[in-house]
Design a binder for these strands. Structure first.
Length: 470
RNA sequence: GCUCUCUUCGUCUAGUGGUUAGGACGCUGGCCUCUCACGCCGGUAACAGGGGUUCGAAUCCCCUAGAGAGUACCA
């Protein structure tokens, strides 16, 4: 039996991190076992499903690199099949028509709650003959006694008494099938062997197993993964900032970093923190997933993202960084090779957005100095050093503008003035970067280039002058 | 309310009857150093509570508390 898993989101919003994680788990499980991963769009709710959501989900899957072998299948394209199954159930007496008005159902619910009972349909229409031409829904005839055990790969055996379950609606009055019916039919038709999904579906599972049995299908294995909470331990919502996978992309996270972060939420392999997708496939097992929900921690994601930015191929990071430079109105082709900038800056940024911001000085002059940095370093005492540096730089030929030579010049000037290198390098750094933090002074000068260096030193000297006479 | 689920440092986790309860992020002290980072070394901090079982419980059982899910003509 070849393993077949599926990811089955409903297109009522973007792909959020919780969905992405269950998709990842399903993907890995299929890949690990040499099986197939299917994508299915559960759009039976015509009211709430949108094409934009479908696109957002597809875009998120693509960005993460969670490629599927089959699909996307759309449930709205399979209504005939669902209806055939419902009709079959009807004919066999395993389902029935119900015309109970909503207000009766509502009253029933209120009464049951008042008597401290679990609200459930009372089966009034089970043996009534409803005219097929009058408005009605179809309900599944759930077994009235006995129990159904969900043998979950993560939770273990979870028993449910059939007395807790009621006759759920499988076809709406508008003729559209409902979720519990369509998932069951699809999972069976698509020969899904392992259903990996959020644990909010755990209590639906016994109903689905009953339908499956009524239809004569063999139930798949189930694995209900716990949900992801926000930083504060509350249910994840827009309130927590980014929850959409695409928002993480736009904020400068790498897909491999997000994937790596997500797999470590509820799963681990000893003390290992960094996993390539290949390693995930090799090491992951759904039965090793924790039962408890876990809180999303952006600090750790940031750390992972930085690790990946730092160790990835600079050329690749440069490609991904380019659009972030664009957002700052910078055209990377107008300055140093972006890959060289990445090499110099990678250890200094947690996200690509941040990397772009701290690298802008390589491509254009800054407007204002960082206040604290200027106050501390651009003082009259720095004038002498800057003047000497300027003179030395001015004499340098284009081909001498190398990190080695540049470092040499800075060292020489500090020796001449008999001060520590920092006394010379820091004012120079603030002069050409605008603030007191940057790569090594030689690399920084190299990236900025001779022309801009001289221009910015002049600006700094003017600034010192103005400050001295103020 | 009812059914089901969950509970180890602030967070993610290791741990499956005997450990000084380990690692990671964060925070923090130091080293490195032209700055900021990176890196390296160190510190901080946890078994929800109470009963059992056992020579011995984070690990097994029960209860309590807290958290979550479901209880839709949503998925």
């Amino acid at each position: 039996m070849t393993v077949r898993t599926r990811f089955a989101p409903s297109p009522t919003g973007y792909l959020h991190v919780g969905g992405a994680r269950t998709a990842l788990f399903s993907y890995l499980y299929a890949r690990k076992h040499g099986g197939q991963f299917v994508l299915r769009i559960e759009d039976t709710d015509l009211e709430r499903s949108t094409a934009e959501s479908v696109n957002a989900i597809l875009e998120g899957m693509t960005w993460l690199g969670l490629d599927y072998d089959e699909g996307p299948f759309y449930q709205t394209h399979r209504f005939d099949r669902y209806n055939a199954v419902i009709d079959e159930l009807l004919e066999k007496g395993l389902a029935y028509r119900c015309d109970c008005p909503k207000d009766r159902l509502e009253k029933l619910r209120v009464d049951q709650m008042a008597r401290k009972m679990k609200p459930r349909y009372d089966g009034r229409c089970r043996n009534r003959q409803i005219d097929p031409d009058t408005p009605h829904v179809i309900r599944f005839k759930n077994p009235v006694d006995g129990a159904v055990v969900v043998d979950d790969m993560i939770r273990g055996r979870v028993p449910f008494s059939n007395e807790e379950l009621d006759d759920l609606i499988i076809r709406r009055s508008d003729g559209a099938p409902t979720y519990n019916l369509s998932v069951v039919v699809d999972d069976a038709d698509m020969e899904i062997t392992h259903v990996i999904r959020g644990d909010d579906h755990l209590t639906n599972t016994p109903r689905q197993i009953n339908i499956l049995k009524a239809l004569g299908f063999e139930p798949p294995r189930y694995a209900h993964v716990p949900m992801i909470l926000g930083d504060d331990g509350a249910r994840l919502s827009k309130r927590h900032g980014a929850v959409s996978v695409i928002a993480y992309r736009d904020q400068g996270y790498l897909p491999e970093a997000l994937l790596n972060y997500l797999i470590r939420l509820g799963w681990s392999h000893g003390d290992q923190e960094i996993f390539s997708v290949e390693q995930m496939i090799e090491l992951f097992d759904i039965s090793d997933v924790n039962k408890a929900a876990s809180a999303f921690n952006t600090d750790k994601l940031d750390w992972l993202n930085q690790q990946y930015i730092q160790h990835a191929e600079p050329a690749r990071i440069a490609r991904l960084l380019s659009p972030h430079m664009g957002k700052l109105d910078i055209d990377p082709s107008t300055g140093p090779e972006l890959a060289d900038v990445v090499t110099a800056q990678a250890a200094r940024a947690k996200t690509l957005t941040e990397l772009a911001e701290i690298s802008a000085f390589c491509y254009r002059d800054f407007d204002d100095y960082d206040e604290g940095s200027a106050k501390k370093h651009l003082r009259p005492v720095a004038r002498e050093g800057l003047e000497r540096l300027r003179a030395a730089f001015d004499l340098m030929a284009f081909e001498d503008w190398t990190p080695e030579q540049l470092k040499h010049v800075v060292e020489r000037v500090s020796e001449e003035l008999e001060v520590n290198m920092g006394k010379v390098a820091q004012p120079l750094r603030v002069a050409i970067v605008g603030r007191a933090a940057s790569p090594g002074i030689d690399e920084t000068l190299m990236l900025v280039g001779k022309e801009a260096t001289l221009r910015r030193i002049d600006k700094a000297l003017a600034y010192i002058e103005a400050r001295a006479s103020a």
